[in-house]
Design a protein around this nucleic acid. Structure first.
Length: 274
DNA sequence: CGGGCGGCCTGGAGGC
DNA sequence: TGCCTCCAGGCCGCCC
């Protein structure tokens, strides 16, 4: 669920409250999320250091600290990173926490443990295995049709799978790929080898537009997502087709259909999307 | 190398 | 009411 807009909303909500705060102590409560939690590296790189900047790459939140280290957090499916008073009791599935100066705590809750958290050197982070294979950011600079078509050159995958492939383009998951394809009027199963330049332009614009609108709406909260202060997003009310099988298409009123592609649900309007 | 698919994990929803 | 099954999906690894 957390895709680019959710992580960007999280980054913006935490940046003013976290920048300049000192991490006094690191607490690791679980042996592993999707990967083992390295207690020693987290403490050695982060304890005693003040936060200097919050950045985002793909769906990863990067928290830079003094001394040239970065805390990398991925929320997986169900992760939630929130800033609370230090005295707040531990919540269920709170696997990692950072005691900060001024009596606050940054805590990571992740019931499904699909997330990732680790500390590494800031310099050269782009060559870390988590980042080395990633494709370009869709908003920075805003994606255009020619760039998107160039990325797809020589491929034949369904366009939905292509949009969600982080080695091609980062930040777009199931919800926003589904919504961008609806806005562009393209069927999710269409091969990228059979998309005209005009449709690539529409699709690129739709991806940029839906991501930017979702950021402005505070992200999409279906089950778990909140920003760093615990606020839910409200873009879910603007979803045109995602999760709406059987409901009328907002453009033409034809019933929205559900399609399973590589074990993932897609939703589309059979009349508007070809 | 491209592309399809299973597995990881838990909570919530739905069926009987 | 309670139990069971299924499903949510980002990402990786395996396979052809």
């Amino acid at each position: 669920m957390p895709e680019l807009p959710e992580i960007e909303v999280l980054r913006r909500s935490l940046a003013p409250r976290l920048t300049g705060r000192r991490i006094e102590r690191v607490e690791v409560f679980a042996p592993a999320l999707r990967e083992p939690l390295d207690r020693r590296a987290l403490s050695r790189r982060l304890a005693g250091r003040a936060v200097t900047a919050l950045r985002r790459r793909s769906k990863y939140l990067l928290i830079d600290v003094e001394g040239g280290s970065t805390l990398v957090v991925h929320l997986g499916m169900s992760g939630r990173l929130t800033l609370v008073p230090a005295a707040t009791p531990r919540e269920p599935h709170e696997h990692l926490a950072f005691q900060l100066d001024r009596g606050e705590r940054l805590r990571l809750r992740d019931p499904r443990r699909f997330g990732v958290a680790f500390a590494a050197a800031t310099a050269g982070l782009e060559t870390d295995p988590h980042f080395a294979h990633l494709g370009p950011e869709p908003l920075d600079p805003p994606l255009d049709g020619a760039a998107l078509a160039a990325i797809a050159t020589g491929l034949s995958a369904p366009v939905k799978a292509f949009l969600m492939d982080a080695s091609r383009l980062v930040g777009v998951g199931n919800i926003y790929a589904t919504e961008a394809l609806f806005r562009a009027g393209i069927h999710p199963a269409r091969s990228v080898a059979r998309i005209s330049s005009g449709r690539w332009a529409r699709l690129a614009a739709a991806v940029v537009e839906v991501l930017e609108q979702a950021i402005r709406a505070g992200g999409t909260t279906l089950n778990d997502f909140t920003d760093g202060a615990g606020n839910e997003g409200y873009f879910q009310v603007d979803l045109a087709v995602y999760g709406r099988a059987g409901e009328p298409c907002p453009r033409c009123a034809a019933p929205v259909r559900r399609l399973v592609q590589s074990n993932r649900s897609s939703f589309y309007c059979p009349r508007c999307q070809r």
